[in-house]
């Protein structure tokens, strides 16, 4: 259940396109917040620039809408100044992995106590569909008109390698599991990174023959594979279809963390 009085009702309907997955991620985050029992005046939502990063603007708490890629730097500042605050960062794939790549790995390394939710639509949505570091090989975008030739970043694995205490990946279709993952992330001291594969029918779908919303959902659902199953297939040496990504909890551990609430 979405926390009822956390939405800025006067700001709705939001700017997201019809069928954009970002709205569902806001719902899941607010449901997780409700479950945690956080108070509005002890919570800050922080974001960079992009469609995904507009999310804090629809939530009735203190928020920072910062410069492109710098959400994590600002969030670290907030957490250091006010360790009693609950800090949640909304960010996009371009925001987090392209211009903000270094902030990302260092925030994971420092293990700052906050929850980072990355809405990975595999494209620069806001600026009209340029390729991002997570655009899959072969996918079309305005900057990869012949299909992306570079391999894509796996953001969740990157966070695991860089040292985050909790890492999970779901899609915006798996709302229940995503809510649970966000809640667990919020409970875990240290940096919790939740990658959400979201649909962007307007910019990713349009260039990749996935213009309709059910097609985009099917693309996400069809390529997602539970991590347990994936590991088993790897062990058996079975073929894993091209484009498959793992979903589920990737890591939960207790590395020393910074800025944990006493």
């Amino acid at each position: 259940m979405i926390a009822p009085d956390w939405l800025r009702e006067d700001r709705l309907p939001h700017i997201y396109c019809t069928g954009c997955g970002n709205g569902s991620v806001i719902n899941c985050t607010l449901a997780a917040v409700e479950e945690m029992g956080w108070k509005r005046d002890e919570t800050a939502f922080i974001s960079g620039i992009g469609c995904s990063s507009r999310a804090p603007g629809y939530i009735l708490t203190d928020s920072l809408h910062t410069t492109h890629g710098r959400a994590l730097a600002f969030a670290t500042g907030v957490k250091m100044a006010r360790p009693d605050f609950n800090v949640v960062v909304f960010t996009g794939d371009g925001d987090l992995a392209a211009i903000g790549g270094n902030h990302f790995i260092h925030a994971c390394r420092r293990n700052v106590d906050m929850t980072v939710i990355c809405m990975n639509n595999q494209i620069y949505g806001m600026t009209g569909g340029q390729g991002s570091p997570t655009t899959p090989t072969g996918a079309f975008s305005t900057t990869t008109p012949y299909g992306a030739s570079e391999p894509a970043f796996d953001l969740a694995e990157l966070a695991v390698a860089a040292g985050a205490n909790y890492v999970a990946r779901w899609t915006s279709y798996h709302v229940k599991e995503l809510t649970k993952a966000i809640t667990t992330g919020m409970q875990t001291p240290g940096l919790a990174f939740i990658e959400v594969r979201t649909q962007c029918p307007t910019n990713f779908g349009r260039h990749n023959k996935l213009r309709s919303i059910p097609d985009m959902i099917e693309y996400l659902r069809g390529n997602a594979m539970l991590r347990v199953k994936y590991d088993r297939l790897v062990e058996e040496g079975a073929d894993i279809p091209e484009g498959t990504f793992t979903i589920g909890e990737l890591v939960r551990r207790r590395r020393p963390a910074m800025g944990v609430k006493q």
């Binding site: 979405i2 719902n27 709302v175």
Partner: peptide, 8 residues
Amino acid sequence: HMICPDQA
């Protein structure tokens, strides 16, 4: 209720 991206 959870998936509705427009909170409608």
